[in-house]
């Protein structure tokens, strides 16, 4: 069981690294915002898995907050790009 959790965490770390490279390279504002969105989603899943590793029920609330509030920044940036803010 522990090996599976380690494999999952390392795969997620590689996903975060690749999308961060896209954030640095991306030629456009929309590309960087997509990278931020992907990083937020992977971070939410990582928070839930780390909460399972620590065996504390209260730790899952942080992932809940990220799932509820993480997309507001992306929507505000999109409205700014559209010129409608």
């Amino acid at each position: 069981m522990t090996t599976i959790i380690y494999i999952a965490l390392i795969l997620m770390a590689f996903g975060m690294l690749l999308s961060f490279i896209r954030f640095v390279k991306g030629p456009n504002t929309a590309d960087r915002t997509v990278a931020l969105d992907t990083l937020t989603t992977i971070g939410t899943a990582a928070l839930v898995l780390l909460g399972y590793m620590f065996h504390r029920y209260i730790y899952v609330d942080v992932a809940l907050i990220y799932a509820v509030l993480g997309f507001i920044g992306v929507i505000v940036i999109a409205r700014y790009l559209e010129g409608a803010l």
Partner: peptide, 13 residues
């Protein structure tokens, strides 16, 4: 150490 929050996960451990 673990987090300083009194919840069932802390009291049972």
């Amino acid at each position: 150490g673990t987090a300083p929050i009194f919840s069932p996960g802390y009291l049972d451990g």
